[in-house]
Amino acid sequence: MEETTVLTATPKKVKPLLDRSITTREVIFLLAVVFCLTPLITPPIALVMGLVVAQFIGHPYLHLNNKATHILLQVSVVGLGFGMNVTSALKAGREGILFTIVSITGTLVTGFLLGKFLKIEKKTSYLICAGTAICGGSAIAAISPVIKAEEKQISVALGTIFILNSIALFLFPAIGHALNLSETQFGLWCAIAIHDTSSVVGAAGRYGAHALEVATTVKLARALWIIPVAFLSTLIFKNKGGKIKIPYFIGLFVAAIVVNTYVPFVHKFSHYLTGFATAGLTLTLFLIGCGLSRKVLQSVGFKPLVQGIILWAIISVAALWAVTSLAQ
Rank of each mutant, 00 (worst) to 15 (best):
G106N: 07
I143Q: 01
S155R: 13
T105M: 12
G136A: 10
L127D: 00
P173C: 13
N180E: 14
S103G: 14
T100Y: 00
G131R: 06
K152V: 13
L80K: 04
I101N: 10
A130I: 10
I167D: 01
A168S: 15
I134M: 04
V77H: 03
K152T: 13
T110E: 02
L179M: 14
I104F: 01
A149N: 07
G131K: 09
G111K: 06
S138N: 13
I71S: 07
N85V: 11
N165S: 15
P173A: 14
I71C: 05
S125Y: 06
L113C: 13
L158A: 07
F117E: 00
A68D: 03
A139H: 02
S155Q: 12
M84S: 13
G131C: 09
G131S: 10
F172M: 15
L179R: 09
S76Q: 08
S125D: 02
G137H: 02
V75W: 01
M84H: 09
V146G: 11
I167V: 15
A92N: 07
L113V: 09
G137D: 03
V77C: 09
A168R: 02
A149S: 15
T100R: 07
V77A: 14
G81D: 09
T100K: 11
L171V: 13
A68N: 09
A157F: 03
I97G: 09
S103A: 15
A139R: 04
I147D: 00
F112G: 10
A139E: 04
I128W: 00
V86G: 10
I120Y: 01
F117C: 12
G81E: 05
K91W: 08
C135H: 03
S166A: 15
I163G: 07
I140W: 01
E151H: 07
K91F: 10
A142L: 06
A130H: 02
I161M: 01
I104D: 03
L164M: 12
I147M: 06
G131D: 01
A130S: 12
L73C: 14
I71P: 03
M84W: 02
A130G: 11
